[in-house]
């Protein structure tokens, strides 16, 4: 942990550049949403405040992920290609844990603050009553969302044991998951099938939309249970896939 901080601070310029990018990113999102709501009052039933909450929640999930594991996982193909994975496997710690959490990217703290800002703005502008129970449900589903996102990322990146050169894999994953930033109700336009797919099969709905709905008390405890089961199930699947993949690791040269 301390080493991560040192690693982060080691490149001071990089650290501040990162903070600046995050601020810029939050600003861009705000302007984008403001522009949309200049022209309309709701998107698929979502008001301006709710949209800010949605985008903020998605940013929060991504910020937590980026801090904990995203950077590490996106580096996995490199580790495999160059064979530095050898040292990871050599350590007396769970290899999956080590690969996922090796560096805690503390320079992503700016992103967390930005996400917090978006959420606070959203809550203030969405005229909905937020109860203690719904905050609890929201928090619980955020945890599930991070676990789901982690499991999806790990499974995608684990493919690099066979594909070796897949730098673009993580970018592809990011693009797909950023669908979660749009209100799921939009996809109803494509039929119930699309909504079902995004809720249960590729559970992007759980990454942001459903936690936000939980905050408004708009979903049943059944959906929350589904979210929890999906998180546990996907995590187990990802872990199994990982240990299977490690067996086919072939290292690189001497």
């Amino acid at each position: 942990m301390r080493n991560c901080l040192r690693q982060a601070v080691e490149f001071r310029a990089n650290f501040w550049a990162n903070v600046l990018t995050n601020i810029g990113w939050v600003l861009a999102l705000t302007i984008f949403l403001k522009l949309i709501f200049k022209n309309t009052t709701s998107v698929a039933g979502w008001t301006e405040g709710e949209m800010f909450l949605l985008v903020g929640t998605y940013s929060l999930v991504r910020a937590i992920s980026d801090t904990l594991f995203a950077g590490n996982l996106s580096d996995l193909p490199n580790q495999i290609r160059l064979g530095t994975m050898d040292f990871t496997l050599l350590r007396p710690v769970n290899s999956q844990f080590f690969v996922s959490m090796r560096f805690v990217a503390l320079n992503n703290l700016g992103q967390l603050v930005g996400a917090g800002g978006l959420i606070a703005y959203g809550v203030a502008h969405a005229s909905v009553h937020v109860s203690e129970v719904s905050i609890l449900a929201y928090t619980g589903l955020i945890v599930c969302a991070v676990v789901i996102f982690y499991s999806l990322s790990l499974m995608a990146m684990t493919l690099s044991f066979w594909l070796v050169r897949v730098e673009n894999l993580y970018v592809a994953l990011e693009t797909v998951t950023s669908l979660a930033r749009t209100p799921i109700d939009v996809f109803r336009a494509f039929g119930r099938g699309a909504e079902f797919f995004l809720t249960y099969i590729l559970p992007l709905a759980f990454l942001a939309a459903l936690p936000v709905k939980a905050l408004f008390g708009q979903i049943t405890s059944g959906v929350i249970t589904v979210g929890f089961c999906l998180a546990v199930g996907l995590f187990t699947l990802a872990a199994a896939f990982w240990s299977y993949a490690v067996r086919s690791y072939s290292s690189a040269s001497s």
Binding site: N3, Q7, E10, T84, D86, F87, L90, S254
Partner: peptide
């Protein structure tokens, strides 16, 4: 395991 051709040390620290 020590590999003469690879390093396990933290490169930037």
């Amino acid at each position: 395991l020590v590999m003469g051709q690879k390093n396990q040390l933290w490169w930037d620290l």
